[in-house]
Amino acid sequence: MDIGPYLPFWGELTQAQRDTLSQAVTERFFPQGTLISGGSEDCTGLILPLEGQLRAYLLTDEGKELTLYRLFPGELCLFSASCAMRDIQFDVMVEARQDTRALLLPAPVYRSLMESSVPVSNFTNQLMAGRFSDVMWLMDQILSKKLDSRLAAFLVEEGRLAGTETLSLTHDQIARHLGSAREVVTRMLKYFQSEGLVQLGRGGVRLLDRRGLERLAGDSLREK
């Protein structure tokens, strides 16, 4: 399998390293909702989506889910191979948010490559730093921002990703993304509806006033 186009460091590998990677990588299909990685005890390997979308999230002691970030085609998921990353000391779950076709690289192979290749090690460190920046941004949002602004930002960002004003999301799914309780999200969505920002329906939310949501989101909204 030609995996070179998906790996920025491919051109700096030796032929032997390229052969090892090509022989180790496999292509997998994960139906929507599949739990791909269940944390540090479940070292699946590095995942690179070719089609679809993945979600990385934490599971709190109270059993609530908190979305850290999503991965799109071409973005490498490191947390699904946490056993290869010595600095990861917490459990990150990874699920298929959509039907996803992906490349899977066994963790031991990638760990060996990091130890023998400076470009791979540098790439991994940069990617990990970027992911931790995402996590720190999220923690700041949770600690310093109100739920209404976070919810508004989530709805706007979902609308951008889906390319539509109608989001097929239940209140429970939204609460899981935000690490909140479904009842709290439902109350907030009903308030949004009373303000003319959204329209609620069975199993979905329609965005009526995206600019109003953007104003409410403020700096909780990530840059486009």
Rank of each mutant, 00 (worst) to 15 (best):
M1K: 13
I3P: 00
G4D: 06
P5F: 06
Y6H: 04
P8M: 08
F9T: 10
E12M: 11
E12P: 01
T14Y: 00
T14A: 00
A16W: 00
A16G: 00
A24Q: 08
V25R: 06
F30V: 02
Q32M: 02
S37M: 08
E41W: 09
C43F: 07
G45Q: 14
L48P: 00
L48Y: 03
P49T: 13
P49C: 07
E51R: 15
G52Y: 11
Q53M: 15
L54I: 13
L54F: 11
Y57M: 13
L58Q: 10
T60S: 13
D61T: 12
E62Q: 11
E62I: 04
E65V: 02
L66D: 00
T67L: 15
R70G: 09
P73E: 13
E75H: 09
L76I: 13
C77F: 05
C77E: 14
F79D: 07
S80C: 07
M85E: 09
M85A: 07
R86L: 15
D91Y: 12
V92R: 12
M93K: 14
V94H: 04
A96P: 00
A96H: 04
R101F: 03
A102I: 10
A102Q: 08
V109R: 09
Y110V: 08
Y110R: 14
Y110F: 15
L113W: 03
M114D: 08
S117A: 11
S117G: 06
S121L: 15
F123R: 15
Q126P: 00
Q126K: 14
D134K: 15
V135M: 15
M136E: 13
L143A: 11
K146V: 00
L147I: 05
V156G: 04
L161Q: 07
G163C: 04
G163Y: 07
S168L: 14
T170N: 08
H171R: 15
I174P: 00
I174C: 06
R176Y: 01
G179N: 03
V185G: 02
Y191F: 03
Q193G: 04
L197R: 12
L197E: 08
V198I: 09
Q199K: 13
Q199I: 13
R202T: 05
V205T: 11
V205I: 14
L208S: 11
R210W: 09
R210M: 14
R211T: 13
E214G: 05
R215S: 13
L216Y: 03
S220W: 04
K224R: 14
